[in-house]
Amino acid sequence: MDLSAINPVLLVASLMVAATPILLAAIGELVVEKSGVLNLGVEGMMITGAVCGFVVAVETGSPALGFVCAALGGAALALLFGLLTQYLMSNQVATGLGLTLFGLGLSALIGQSYVGIKAPATPRLEIPLLSDLPVLGRIVFSHDLMVYLSLALVAGVWMLLKYSRAGLILRAVGENHEAAHALGYKVIRIRLTAIAFGGACAGLGGAYLSLVRVPQWTEGMTAGAGWIALAIVVFASWRAWRVLLGAYLFGGITVLQLNLQAAGAAIPVEVLSMSPYLITILVLVVMSAGRARAALNAPASLGRVFHASN
């Protein structure tokens, strides 16, 4: 085994890229769940974003426009979920799973004629001087814009939830929708906004896959990333910074296990291959064991149907 072949700087740089799609989707889902809505359709919204972003970027030649449309596509699909769960009061778990089916089918139909086409390149942001710094330059200052945007989103959501009035209202709606309603807040409108935001983030995450990380369009290309994003929100026990931690941990182990394989580590490949999932469980156990009942951090109204006449 030749562990010296693994360059830690490059490892960190590529784990950031690997984690960005799930980070984007997870931070969006965090906001949705904070408002008391459980949308299990992340996979469907991601893949819809992936195809919308890809198609638009190919047709217009502009990745930026692709990302915008990916966010819109994801949000549109999310609003379908919102319509069903908020106005028609359908079961959120089942509707979310249905949304995944719907999104996978829809995206495959839209993308039919885009298989095997190359996407226009998304430029890496080379910041003069800073990018040339040793270690830090490669890790911090030479990514594409979306990596920075994902980090900014985490910071933004954290600040929103912690310091802003809007965040307080959002949390109130998620904790006790009846009380929030009684206080005069428009529960449904607030939730719809959160749902649309979650969809837009998932769409961006999907487009990051189809435009930057992979980049190509193929049916079912998200290959379960949406589910991982959902797990990351739980892992984070509904805290913004821990979403970042969870996504980077998961992405990091994924990249590390591949690196260990390439370096010929004397660990069975099967074990390496399942390690991202096992380690995520392990870390969560350690964290939840330390703090009594960390799992109770879930918003109290999560997944509950709200009806104003209740």
Binding site: A5, Q261, A262, A263, G264
Partner: peptide, 27 residues
Amino acid sequence: FKVIWAYTWFDPAKEADAAQALIEQGA
């Protein structure tokens, strides 16, 4: 030769990561 077993026929993101890991290790 450095071999990575992806344990999938088709997962574009994982394939991208595997290629990246190999390249970073000098392939």
